Simulated assay, not measured.
Amino acid sequence: MYVKTVPASEATGEMAQVYAADIASMGRVMRATECWSARPDMLVPVESLLHHMRDGFSLGLLNFRLITFIAAQHVPSSYCSHVYFKTLSGMIGRDRTLAVHRDFRSAGLSELQVEMLAYAQQITVDASKIGPGNMDALRRVGLTDLNIADIALAASFRNFMSRYFDAIGASVEPDFLDADPEVREKLSVGKD
């Protein structure tokens, strides 16, 4: 990390509660969570926004994570790419997740998912280029305005988070790194 962070043993108040939730679910505090300890007043609102967005996501948890994975790849964020590769591998399998990383358009996803991810990718690469044609393509596969707004929120949130983690200097925890060095290299799309 480029900034001083608060270790779990020194966390107090709401920060200690968020850290405790990480420890309960993963056995340790994620570096992504530690990044917020330089601004402890932001930790709870950011975590709350993430959970509210993810838990109420109109397209389900899998699609939320697919969007996050594709956005992280195109930020580019090595940290978030590794974390979401591991998470998605547990949901859809490692080989399929690798296929999504290589090219989501030919990874056996549904037409709706391909359009959803193309939109998330465009938001990440250059949202100023999005126009009515993009909306037509999304609606053509059955996405509603609520779905479109959720995709935009998920992709934009990942852009914000990934860029913040890189700016603060978060590095990938070893347990998120794939055992295969070639896969690790493919997922290292940005800062190591």
Score class of each variant (00 low, 15 high):
33 T>A: 05
38 A>L: 12
61 L>E: 11
38 A>M: 07
33 T>K: 01
52 H>W: 09
35 C>T: 05
60 G>I: 02
39 R>L: 12
57 F>R: 00
16 A>D: 01
40 P>N: 09
16 A>S: 07
48 S>R: 13
48 S>L: 15
50 L>M: 13
17 Q>G: 05
41 D>G: 11
17 Q>V: 06
25 S>G: 07
36 W>G: 03
38 A>C: 08
14 E>L: 08
19 Y>C: 06
42 M>I: 15
53 M>P: 07
57 F>K: 01
28 R>Q: 14
31 R>W: 04
16 A>K: 00
40 P>M: 09
10 E>I: 13
18 V>D: 02
53 M>Q: 09
39 R>S: 12
60 G>F: 00
31 R>N: 07
39 R>G: 11
59 L>H: 02
35 C>P: 02
12 T>Q: 07
33 T>I: 08
15 M>F: 04
62 L>E: 02
10 E>M: 15
52 H>G: 11
63 N>K: 09
24 A>H: 01
43 L>Y: 02
56 G>N: 13
33 T>P: 04
42 M>A: 13
15 M>Y: 02
48 S>N: 13
53 M>D: 08
24 A>N: 04
26 M>C: 12
46 V>N: 14
59 L>K: 00
54 R>M: 11
36 W>A: 01
61 L>T: 11
55 D>H: 15
37 S>F: 04
54 R>V: 09
26 M>H: 15
14 E>M: 09
11 A>P: 06
17 Q>D: 08
25 S>H: 10
62 L>V: 03
46 V>S: 12
28 R>A: 12
19 Y>Q: 06
30 M>D: 12
51 H>Q: 14
16 A>M: 01
27 G>C: 04
11 A>Q: 05
44 V>G: 00
24 A>R: 01
41 D>L: 12
36 W>M: 08
49 L>P: 05
35 C>G: 05
50 L>Q: 13
52 H>R: 14
